[in-house]
C-alpha cells in the first residue's frame, strides 16, 4: 500500500473521523447505540454499503453525467441497502427488528453521500474502496465506543451478558436510566470529541 493510500485509509480513523470531526451520521449514532449488538450490526452494514458504493461509483465515474450524479448515487446506495436489509432479515432477524428503520435510513446517512461526492467521484476504484472502508471503520469505532458506555452504564451488560456483578446491586448500585435515552449518546460523543481534541492540540479551533 502506497503512502497516499495509507493516508486515505487511516485518516478517517481519527484525524478526519466522519462522526466526531465532520459530525456526520449523528442520527444513527443516537438511535442504535443503546446496546452493543445493534451498534455492531449497524456498523458492519454501513461499512459494507459504503465500501461497495464507493467502488461502484468510482468505476462509473467517467460515464455519469454531472447533472444527474446525485440520482445515480442514490440508486446505487439504495440497491446496496436493500440487499443488506434483506440479508439481515434472513440471517439475523432479531437484530434486524431492533434496528427497524435505521438500516433503511442508511440511504440518508450523510457519510455515504459525502464520501461519494467528495472522493469516489474523482478517484480510481482501489483508493475509493480504501476510503469507503476507512470511513466505515471510523464510524464503527465511534458507534461502538458510545454503545459500550451506554450499555455498560445503562443496563450493566455488554452484548447482552451481565457484566456488573450482582453484589454491586445488593450494595445499592443502580443502572443509570438516562444512559438508555438518546441524549446521553450525544454527551458521550461530546466526551469522545473532548478527549480527541485534548490529545491533538492542533485540531482545536479557537
Amino acid at each position: 500500500m502506497s503512502e497516499k493510500n495509507k493516508e486515505i485509509f487511516l485518516g478517517p480513523l481519527s484525524k478526519n473521523n466522519p462522526v466526531i470531526v465532520q459530525v456526520l451520521g449523528i442520527c444513527s449514532a443516537l438511535a442504535v447505540t443503546a446496546q452493543m449488538e445493534p451498534a455492531l450490526v449497524m456498523s458492519l452494514s454501513l461499512t459494507a454499503v459504503l465500501a461497495f458504493a464507493s467502488v461502484i461509483i468510482s468505476l462509473m465515474r467517467n460515464t455519469i453525467p454531472n447533472r444527474i450524479r446525485i440520482i445515480v448515487q442514490l440508486v446505487v446506495i439504495a440497491a446496496l441497502v436493500i440487499i443488506v436489509d434483506q440479508i439481515l432479515k434472513a440471517f439475523a432477524y432479531e437484530v434486524s427488528k431492533l434496528l427497524s428503520v435505521y438500516v433503511g435510513l442508511i440511504i440518508t446517512n450523510c457519510i455515504l453521500m459525502g464520501r461519494l461526492e467528495a472522493f469516489a467521484l474523482g478517484n480510481k476504484p482501489w483508493p475509493a474502496f480504501l476510503d469507503g472502508v476507512g470511513n466505515g471503520i471510523g464510524y464503527s469505532i465511534i458507534l461502538l465506543i458510545i454503545a459500550f458506555f451506554r450499555e455498560l452504564l445503562g443496563s450493566g451488560t455488554l452484548f447482552g451478558h451481565q457484566v456488573i456483578p450482582q453484589i454491586c446491586y445488593d450494595w445499592g448500585y443502580e443502572n443509570n436510566g438516562l444512559m438508555i435515552l438518546p441524549p446521553m449518546a450525544l454527551i458521550v460523543a461530546g466526551c469522545i470529541i473532548w478527549v480527541q481534541r485534548a490529545k491533538n492540540p492542533e485540531m482545536q479551533e479557537d
Binding site: 443502580e174 443509570n176 436510566g177 438516562l178 444512559m179 435515552l181
Partner: peptide, 10 residues
C-alpha cells in the same frame, strides 16, 4: 433532572 431521569425509582 439527571437524578430524575437516571434513577426514577429513587
Amino acid at each position: 433532572a439527571f437524578l430524575f431521569f437516571a434513577y426514577p425509582g429513587k
